[in-house]
Simulated scan of single mutants.
Amino acid sequence: MKTTMLLSISRVLFLLITTISFSQNKQLKDHILFYSSFDGKLSADVSVGDAMMYTAENYKKADNAKLGLNDPNVILAKNKGLIGDALHFKKAKTSAVFYKAYKNVGYSNKSWSGTISFWLQLDPDNDLAPGYCDPICITDVRYNDAALWVDFTDHDPRKFRFGALGDLDVWNPENKNDDAKWEQRTVTVKQPPFGKGKWTHITITFSKVNTTKSIFKLYLNGTFKGAIKDVNDPFTWEAEKGKIMLGLGYIGFMDELTIFDKPLDLKEVKFIFELKNGIKTLFK
């Protein structure tokens, strides 16, 4: 009798856990705007806008970008990813490698919310070339003008930062160095968990951008690292010129680039971090 009861309880618990997991998968899947697994191809697996990757000589010449990956220092590395293949930046490059952000990031000039999730593998202190580098920067112009980005600083040891800088002519109209203004708009991690041969998960969330209640958060490996709040600079874009810029000065691997149309909460960030088979799990 006791054995039968325990088996029944176990079945109920199994069904409950399975149902919750399926529900979580479906809920998150329905919020994905853009997903590039880099598995055997450069084009995104899921996209609301243009799925293709582009390369230009530099970002000033982005209007003349060519379809595909046309930089020998950036390759698809077979079986080197968190899951499957990965994008490998072999040298610090000057070319512009990007996806088009239009529709793919859900930009709105009234209230813009979302999440950017991706994985990096590198040893920052030994792999990177001198100077700052930005593994990802999303903007229509440049890093200090209506942009979201993460970077590695040129300190020794290197620090990792998340920056959310609105319209330059609002937050820094004279375009002068101002440490206080920068600190208000960045989250800095002094001892980030990156290391040789180790994948690190980065999640940045943004909520109600272009309102008076905007907030930005950084998570590393499912752990909250800090927030940017009480700064309500507008992010004014020419939406069709928006770009998901990849690997500016970066040397290392990137995988599982995903953009959601809502800011994930801590529980959801941890759920994504712990997926054994990556974002593709959400589509099964």
Rank of each mutant, 00 (worst) to 15 (best):
S21Q: 03
L67T: 11
P72V: 00
K198Y: 01
T223S: 10
D71P: 12
L246I: 15
Y132W: 12
L266P: 01
K181P: 09
I32N: 03
K91I: 05
Y132L: 13
E174K: 15
L7S: 12
L220R: 05
Y59K: 04
D45C: 09
L264M: 14
K208W: 01
F38A: 01
E268C: 07
Y99P: 11
R161S: 14
L42V: 10
K100V: 00
L6W: 08
N104A: 11
T203F: 05
T18A: 15
C133A: 07
Q191S: 11
H201R: 08
R11N: 10
F216I: 04
T236F: 10
G163T: 10
E174V: 11
A96S: 11
N210K: 09
E57I: 05
V97W: 01
D145Q: 06
I9G: 02
L248F: 12
L15K: 09
L218H: 09
L7C: 13
P157H: 01
I272A: 12
G131H: 14
L7D: 15
F98H: 13
G40D: 07
L7W: 06
L282D: 00
D134S: 13
D154Y: 14
D169A: 04
T212D: 15
T115K: 07
K29C: 07
E240V: 14
D45L: 09
K103P: 11
N64P: 04
T186A: 12
S37Q: 01
